[in-house]
Nucleic acid binder design. Sequence first.
DNA 1: CTCGGCCAATCGATCGATTGATTGACCCTG
DNA 2: CAGGGTCAATCAATCGATCGATTGGCCGAG
Lengths: 219, 219
Amino acid sequence: MSGLIEIHRAAVRLFARQGYAGTGIRDLGREAGINSATLYHYAGGKEEILVAVMAGCLEGMLDGGRRALDHSADPAVQLVRLVRLHVAMEAVNPLTAYVTDREVRALSAANRGSVLALRDDYESMFQQVLERGRRTGQFQIDDLSTTRMALLEMCNGVSNWYRPGGRLSVPEVQDRFADLATRLVGCPPVPPAECGTDLRVAVLDSEPLDRHADEEALA
Amino acid sequence: MSGLIEIHRAAVRLFARQGYAGTGIRDLGREAGINSATLYHYAGGKEEILVAVMAGCLEGMLDGGRRALDHSADPAVQLVRLVRLHVAMEAVNPLTAYVTDREVRALSAANRGSVLALRDDYESMFQQVLERGRRTGQFQIDDLSTTRMALLEMCNGVSNWYRPGGRLSVPEVQDRFADLATRLVGCPPVPPAECGTDLRVAVLDSEPLDRHADEEALA
DNA sequence: CTCGGCCAATCGATCGATTGATTGACCCTG
DNA sequence: CAGGGTCAATCAATCGATCGATTGGCCGAG
């Protein structure tokens, strides 16, 4: 019944609800249904679990981002596809994305460096698309860094409030945010035909599935 | 040299850098320059310090929000003034705002309830302004809840990257976000004369001032 | 002398991690 | 098939360290 994947799921559930520092390895063991000592048979330790979860999430987003970009050279299309994929990742894996976003400071210096390197790689995709869109005149952007961070924060926030099975479907959330993103950069909406409505993202191994997911986890 | 204000500042500095659960009361005492036992002479305990910081921040934002609203009945003007004030609060008090945002889950049930009540009061201001702007036809909003949360997440994110003395001044950040907000809701820019460029926010008692503020606190 | 401010020492509890031992499934040899 | 050996999987018990909080008393200003 158990194994590394179940441990990662239990960890994501508890880290999202109580935070990394607020979760003990005995909590982790109880949530995963094993003794705390058995954790060390599968994982090297508490921080190693967090690093694995974060790396899996960020690598998933990087892979998706690359898929989103190579479909068209038009910055508007690329931006919408990037946003649609980002939003889908946050909506399909909200707890994993939430933990990946908010527990970076819990990492030791070495692990924090490698995780931040992954995150910077990902965010540079947005930076480059915004730069090219402004250069072509398709985007009207005042301050590029501010717009990039506002856009990313807006998209990252999805994991704070969306839950699978909620009022909006994932494609609906993608539609809303694609529209919001084009508004932010000051370009007309991108026709659905080329904006990547076909983009799908997978449920990550670390994402908890069960109905026990605490509704108040992110309150 | 010490006192409750210094303790709050030390707490905000450490809670932002290491998180609430990751900070011990001995850390707090060291940062404030007193023995950990002396903390209990000024404050009731660790959680009480966090609650005081959060309440001070949220009450400051509520007061500011009310000031922003009563200046005009035009939803576009109200929205821009709300956003300018919110952004200023985040930019002037980034560490306090950051802690207030992200440590809600560390609170016990009773304290979490009262803090969330304050936050809900504040966010309902945005909700009502967005509703009125859509009813008057000034705003083009697809899904009101999604737009509200995207807007709030975008503004809350300022505390993740802005620091006093940074590349942009506070009024410059306000200008950028006022523009982004009107784009998000689909209305024309609001003329500076009525958008509240005069709005100023105070440095909170809990906001650390010194140059020791760790640059990597929110990395 | 009084008393607010302060701290060394200490409380029981819990922390992340390790140890040593037990279990059971599997494989090879006779 | 029987029997010995191997190894992944598991857990109770325990490690030293640290947790939040408390106690009792020292000290200097009024």
